[in-house]
Design a protein around this nucleic acid. Structure first.
Lengths: 224, 224
DNA sequence: CTTAAATAATAGTAATACTATAATAAAATA
DNA sequence: TATTTTATTATAGTATTACTATTATTTAAG
């Protein structure tokens, strides 16, 4: 099952499959550590290479540039979420319950992990929250979009959209609501930590603040 | 009135007030053009200096680095929005109507401009949409937050939050909803242009798509 | 066992993000 | 008015970044 997920990552994202060699796996694993430590702006292939005891040129054989590596990491994440959807929504009939489970998966970042993964999951989540939007907020979105690099994100959005429609077939903005929910998970989590005045986090003692907020939002919105 | 707005920009953001000299004003005006043209990542002080016929060192006398310049531009924008709120919400009594007007101001980017400004307004809006989140998605958010550089954003959020509470005093997440609306304006506008599958833009022939979506969202949510 | 192909290491370059110092202009004071 | 002081810009530099080209080494194939 581990392998299945990894094979889904779009081959446009890399020059050489990082899963095909030991050094490739190290590149991905260590880059997750480093991007989390330094932030994407201060992360460089030089620093990564030193960290894993190789050279920049070697890293460049795997990824064209650090933006592609970030895309690779996020594609992996979205594929992982898709897998969680698959196994965790399977048993649920009620679409309302399904949507709550979706929010749970998206916000309850840790702990719902399956089996073992060879990197720090909490660091991955931090990258998704802090650096995720940098995958698409670039000058060449249009071009890279044609390479299908945002496909897993769109598929997640499509799935959530279908759940929304099955709750309320009259609702006019299912895709926008789906992408708003996904983005809200990220920026509300970020804000609650770093810019809490942009949230009501301090008034709620819940550690599942973002989950509660969005659960309330969808239930009011789709009236249930 | 013009001056009033400009004086509100936090002096922590610059080394020397760009409004105090001709070259300072050129730096701000041309940087708006260039950031829009190149994207923030490819924008450099060197390119800016060449464009306005000066040197990098001169630009560095005004702004510590390009991130500070971006913050300056966004602070200017948020102060401008605050001013629009002030004059355009004044006559409205009904808080529901007020909230719709807020969404109108936030989404109907152009045309509600007052008087003249000495730069391209549509380029400013593009920067707000595409680069705005890069002001806070940085390693040192915590530190720069202490310098009050996000104050105008928080004030806008606070104002919207108060409107929300006056519509529904029982609503538990007014600040989160406010910041979600602001962020949604930006990413939904971005998605509708560059990643339309993340929206329902194609199904609606409205050029005010994001406005309609969010108006519908708040009216369902706060039941009116 | 040899040759070819794949991979990594070494050594570069152009651009970026600054900084230090020198030159010039403007302002303030004698 | 002359002369300091100060403010501002220009010149020239450095370290780092983002790559690339070439060479060396390993692995695989015939």
């Amino acid at each position: 099952m581990d392998l299945l997920l990894q094979f889904r990552v779009n081959s446009n994202l890399f020059l050489r499959d990082p899963e095909s060699s030991v050094i490739g796996k190290q590149i991905v694993r260590k880059s997750i550590d480093l991007i989390d430590d330094l932030g994407f702006e201060h992360f460089t292939f030089k620093k990564l290479a030193i960290e894993i005891g190789t050279t920049e040129a070697t890293v460049y054989r795997y990824f064209e540039n650090k933006h592609r590596l970030l895309l690779y990491i996020l594609n992996w994440y979205w594929s992982y979420v898709e897998y969680l959807f698959l196994i965790q929504l399977r048993g649920i009939q009620d679409p309302k319950e399904k949507l709550v489970k979706v929010l749970d998966i998206l916000t309850n970042h840790l702990s719902n992990g399956f089996g073992e993964v060879d990197f720090d999951q909490s660091k991955l989540i931090q990258i998704v929250i802090k650096e995720g939007s940098k995958t698409y907020l670039v000058k060449d979105v249009k071009e890279i979009n044609q390479e299908e690099v945002f496909k897993p994100y769109k598929e997640i959005c499509e799935q959530i959209s279908q759940i929304i429609v099955s709750i309320d077939s009259q609702y006019l903005y299912p895709h926008s609501l789906a992408s708003t929910l996904i983005e809200a998970v990220h920026h509300q989590t970020f804000f609650s930590i770093y810019l809490p005045k942009l949230t009501d986090y301090s008034k709620h003692n819940s550690k599942n603040y973002v989950f509660e907020y969005l659960k309330n939002l969808v239930s009011s919105l789709l009236n249930y």
